[in-house]
Amino acid sequence: MSKPLLEVKGLKKYFDVTGGVFSKKVGEVKAVDDVSFTVYEKEVLGIVGESGCGKSTTGKALLRLTEPTEGEVKFAGKDIISLSDEEMRKMRRDMQIIFQDPYASLNPRHKIEKILGEPLLVHGIGSKKERREKVERILEIVGLPGEAAQRYPHQFSGGQRQRIGIARALIVNPKLIVCDEPVSALDVSIQSQILNLMEDLQEEFGLTYVFIAHDLSVVRHISDRVGVMYLGRMVELADNEELYENPMHPYTRSLLSAVPDPDPDKITERVILEGDVPSPSNPPSGCAFHTRCPEAMDICKQVRPEFTEKSVNHFVACHLYDDDVKDRSQIK
């Protein structure tokens, strides 16, 4: 496997909950609670999870768009959490983001030319003429006509806008792109176009993606490895095939059983979870999933499972795979 590009260790993001007249801190929402993973060069790491599990916050914390509460993020061997604002600003050239909502992420008052040219400008790339050429080239790469540069965002459809969003991230030649649910706001027919484009671009430019999504089939399509998040924690991380064929964590299993199969004759066993996702401001003790887990044991309520490698490149945070626990259940 190639070199690690991004190493995340113990990433935490807690949002303060304030209340009362003087906005005193009354609690905290643990949006991201101790997440660790590594992204290797030129791979696509998918992150899936249901709404509110902290996957978007993880993506934004990686880029310090929200300051992480704790943890270590190393990009190309450099700890970016300790960088000053100005150093971080320069670093952003190598790490870009594509946003979920193509309607909200483009400044409505700017022409496409300015939207795409501005990243070049602020990083001091090229002269005015070169920048204009670059903008035209990138538009062609993402499949938009060159004239698009003279128009405003509201003159484009959702899929076209997302292409512009991709072009904006791509234009500074970044190494890493965090894709924060880039297709979930688009029509299904447009989704595949955008996904194919992103795949082509990844191959062409040797990009590394952190691909955040809630759509399991989308993630399966594009990712090399997939991480599953639940309530601010990473519960499972494995190679694409391995995860979909051999899910270990009970949450992953139930999630995968919910994916519809086009074959009507195939009978799949649905693992239906009961209850709601607990509040991240007051997560359950021990394993966060124990309140809904069909295979919960006593230890799950008390001890938070370690996120460890249970088989080759397959990380799971579950007591079911602890050696001593396995023995104990056998004794029973």
Binding site: L63, Q96, I97, D101, N107, R168
Partner: peptide, 17 residues
């Protein structure tokens, strides 16, 4: 709060800009 402001930050723009 708009996303394009966050996008501008992600692009590496100074807050004055």
């Amino acid at each position: 709060q708009e996303e394009y402001i966050l996008a501008a930050k992600a692009q590496g723009m100074k807050s004055s800009r």
